[in-house]
Nucleic acid binder design. Structure first.
Length: 221
DNA sequence: TGCCAGGCCGGGT
DNA sequence: ACCCGGCATGGC
């Protein structure tokens, strides 16, 4: 990867960090909570996920065995505020069923698996796609995997670092081949992109005031 | 009021 | 290989 790309991505990082400060991601107390949140936040505002997490905690259900053993209808009701709740209840179940079966619900053992192998395993679970898998690896496991999301693609596209046909794995590869494989860096970088995107890079929002505004834009939103 | 949110899946060309 | 609709709550 070109040093120009590396320089640009580093400059983006510095500009966002200077503007926002550290984001302290993932907002969760345990790896299990990260994983549950990663599934619940699919195409959903984080605010709504928080409500669902509160419900699960209050019910003492934020635990893989409870999640696996409680009636599906009950789980569905607890996570209702997160939206697409029937779909997500099944997705949570498919994860915990797999996790108990393959790793006896042991987080340490799961993350002791080689990262490429584990990623493939996660992608094999119904309802876990690339972003969710990478979020689990990075934010629950502390592994140096770059997480790409809609904001990442939109921001890079607007700055002409990618074209509109770039897919998830290409964008992920762009970061991973341009930056050192440092989990702390990847953690903060993705969080800063989301923070920047929420404020300045929604589909039809203006970019004014964005910390990345000093860098060239040649593509209009 | 409509559009959007830290996606993913399944069915149709 | 693409493209698209469905899923669904809550905020602005």
């Amino acid at each position: 990867m070109s040093t120009r790309t590396t320089d640009t991505l580093r400059a983006f990082y510095e500009a966002m960090l200077a503007a926002w400060g550290p984001q302290h991601w993932w907002p969760a107390e345990t790896p299990t909570e990260v994983i549950v949140g990663a599934i619940l936040t699919q195409n959903t505002a984080w605010r709504n996920v928080e409500r669902a997490i509160v419900n699960l905690k209050r019910a003492g259900a934020l635990d893989c065995r409870r999640l696996g053993d409680m009636p599906l209808d009950q789980l569905t009701e607890l996570i209702r505020p997160a939206g697409t709740y029937r779909v997500k209840a099944r997705r949570l179940r498919s994860f915990v069923d797999w996790f108990r079966q393959c790793y006896d619900a042991d987080i340490e053992r799961m993350f002791a698996t080689p990262v490429d192998t584990l990623r493939e395993q996660l992608l094999g679970i119904h309802g876990i796609g690339r972003e969710t898998a990478d979020s689990i690896l990075l934010y629950a496991g502390g592994l140096a995997t770059f997480v790409v999301d809609a904001y990442t693609a939109r921001i890079l596209y607007r700055h002409r670092l990618i074209d509109d046909s770039a897919d998830y794995d290409e964008i992920k590869e762009l970061f991973e081949s341009s930056l050192p494989a440092d989990p702390g860096l990847f953690n903060e970088y993705h969080a800063l992109l989301v923070r920047t995107g929420k404020q300045h890079c929604r589909p039809r929002a203006r970019c004014s005031g964005c910390p990345l505004e000093p860098f060239e834009h040649e593509v209009s939103p």
